[in-house]
C-alpha cells in the first residue's frame, strides 16, 4: 500500500496572468508539510486543486491513497479543511454554524467539538461576526478537527494571529499527528512556523516547486554553502534565483 497522505505529480493549472507549472510533491502519512512561498506564488491555488475546488489541466493528485476524481465525497469527509479567511455565515451563532456543518460529516464528534470550544475558549452562543480574528481561527480549527479527519489542510492558518495563538495552533498540529497516522499540509509565508513543526517543506516560487523534501535534509544542503542558513535564507535565495531565471 502506498503510504503517502498526499501526492501531486506534474500538476498544471493556468489562469490569466498566473500559472502553476509541473507541481509535484509527496507527503508521507503521519507527518507535517509546510507549503511556503511569497504572496502570489500559488499556495492557495495548489490547495484549491488538492481540495478539488479547481481542476488541474494535467497531472495527478492523490489524496489518502486515492484520486480525488470519482472519490471526492468520501475523500473530503476524511479531510479537515481550513480555508484562508475563515468565512462563516454571518448573523448566526457558533452553535448554528456547528449544527450546519455537522450534517455534512457522518463522522462528526460532538463531544470532541465541545471539548475543543472549551479548550479554545470559544463561546458557542456568540454570533460568528463578533468573534475576534484569533477566535475565528480557533473556531475554524475546531470545526475542521471535530469530524476526526485523517488529513488536515490549512491555508495560511497563522496569518494575522498573535504569537500566543500562533503557538497554540502549532501545538495542535503536532498533537494531531501524534498517533502517527494523521497528516497535515499547511501553507504559510511565516518561515518561523516551519522551523518548529514542519517535517517536510515545499518551496513554491512563482508557480513552480523550487525545492521539496525533508526539512532537515534541505537545510543541511543549504548549509553547505551558508553554514548558518535558515529556512528564511533558503526562501530568499530560491526566490531571487527564480526571478533571475525568469528575467
Amino acid at each position: 500500500m502506498n503510504d503517502n497522505a498526499l501526492e501531486l505529480r506534474m500538476v498544471n493549472k493556468s489562469y490569466p496572468g498566473f500559472s502553476l507549472r509541473d507541481v509535484s510533491l509527496e507527503l508521507p502519512r503521519g507527518y507535517i508539510m509546510g507549503l511556503v512561498g511569497p504572496n502570489g506564488a500559488g499556495k492557495t491555488t495548489t490547495i484549491r486543486l488538492i481540495m478539488n475546488l479547481a481542476r488541474p489541466e494535467s497531472g495527478t493528485i492523490r489524496v489518502l491513497g486515492a484520486e480525488m476524481t470519482g472519490n471526492a465525497v468520501d475523500l473530503k469527509r476524511r479531510i479537515g479543511y481550513v480555508p484562508e479567511n475563515h468565512e462563516f455565515y454571518s448573523g448566526v451563532t457558533t452553535e448554528w454554524t456547528a449544527s450546519f456543518v455537522k450534517r455534512l460529516y457522518p463522522t462528526w464528534n460532538d463531544r470532541k467539538f465541545r471539548e475543543l470550544l472549551d479548550k479554545y475558549g470559544v463561546d458557542a452562543s456568540k454570533k460568528t461576526d463578533v468573534l475576534s480574528k484569533g477566535t475565528r481561527a480557533k473556531l475554524a480549527m475546531a470545526i475542521a478537527l471535530a469530524h476526526e479527519p485523517e488529513l488536515l489542510i490549512l491555508d495560511e492558518p497563522t496569518s494575522g494571529l498573535d504569537p500566543v495563538v500562533r503557538r497554540e495552533l502549532l501545538t495542535d498540529l503536532l498533537e494531531f499527528v501524534k498517533d502517527g497516522d494523521r497528516s497535515v499540509l499547511f501553507s504559510t509565508h511565516i518561515t518561523s512556523d516551519l522551523e518548529r513543526v514542519a517535517d517536510y517543506i515545499t518551496f513554491l516560487i512563482d508557480g513552480r516547486v523550487a525545492a521539496s523534501g525533508e526539512r532537515e535534509s534541505l537545510l543541511e544542503e543549504a548549509r553547505l554553502s551558508n553554514p548558518s542558513a535558515s529556512i528564511e535564507d533558503m526562501l530568499w535565495t530560491l526566490t531571487k534565483g527564480g526571478q533571475r531565471r525568469h528575467a
Partner: peptide
C-alpha cells in the same frame, strides 16, 4: 518520539533524529 515532539513543539523528524 511523537509525544516529545508535541511537548517541545519540535517536528517529528527532528525529534526522531
Amino acid at each position: 518520539i511523537r509525544q516529545l515532539a508535541s511537548d517541545l513543539l519540535a517536528s517529528v523528524i527532528t525529534t526522531k533524529r
